[in-house]
């Protein structure tokens, strides 16, 4: 049915049972006003999910390594865990309740898009993941962090790079890949 390239099958490595490295603990956020980035309809914390719980990026953003679109996870992915995981603090519980409400009312949340390129750019995600490396375990999420920053420590996602063309071209020159206009603009 779908011809999946090898990279997507190798992507997710399980963590060994006894890890020598101490697990990252996400901080308690008491004042969200100081956080960078737009306020999202549900206060989804990447530092808990990707940092503390070590969920690989590709668990949710599944299509990034095979398609040009990064793939925002469906609500089914969220409810997969959160039908059971209710949250350990009242504020966590409030946010998770929003997820369950959305599922029950069949109204997915409208996330504010942070990383957006203009309509005249074609950005193929899978080429960049293929080119920058395929080890996408949580310990080495360097590939995604190249452009998106250290998301596993972000309570609220914000832009860390300008995403302007100069920034893209500098990386292309450093890595000695094509600077041809028509690989992105068509």
């Amino acid at each position: 049915m779908l011809a999946l390239p090898p990279v997507s099958l190798r992507g997710q490595q399980a963590q060994p049972a006894s890890s020598a490295v101490s697990r990252y603990q996400a901080p308690v956020v008491s004042d969200t006003g100081d956080l960078k980035g737009p306020r999202q309809p549900i206060f989804f914390r990447h530092d808990i999910h990707a940092g503390q719980d070590q969920i690989p990026c590709m668990y949710c953003h599944y299509s990034a390594s095979i398609a040009s679109e990064p793939g925002i996870p469906s609500l089914q992915t969220c409810i997969g865990c959160h039908q059971l995981v209710g949250g350990s603090t009242p504020s966590h519980q409030a946010e998770i309740r929003k997820v369950r409400d959305a599922w029950r009312e069949r109204k997915p949340p409208e996330w504010i898009r942070i990383h957006a390129l203009p309509g005249f750019v074609r950005f193929p995600h899978m080429r960049h993941i293929k080119g920058l490396g395929t080890s996408l375990g949580v310990e080495a999420n360097a590939t995604c962090a190249t452009c998106h920053g250290d998301v596993k420590t972000m309570p609220q996602v914000s832009l860390v790079a300008t995403l302007k063309m100069g920034w893209c071209v500098r990386c292309h020159v450093q890595n000695k890949v094509s600077r041809d206009c028509s690989v992105c603009h068509y």
């Binding site: 779908l2 299509s63 398609a67 793939g71 609500l75 069949r106 997915p108 996330w111 957006a116 995600h125």
Partner: peptide
């Protein structure tokens, strides 16, 4: 500047559709 975009996910991901493909 570009107007703010929203990302609206699927409720249930269709099996044979991958965004971008």
């Amino acid at each position: 500047p570009e107007p703010t975009e929203r990302l609206i996910p699927y409720l249930i991901q269709p099996e044979d559709q991958i965004p971008g493909l």
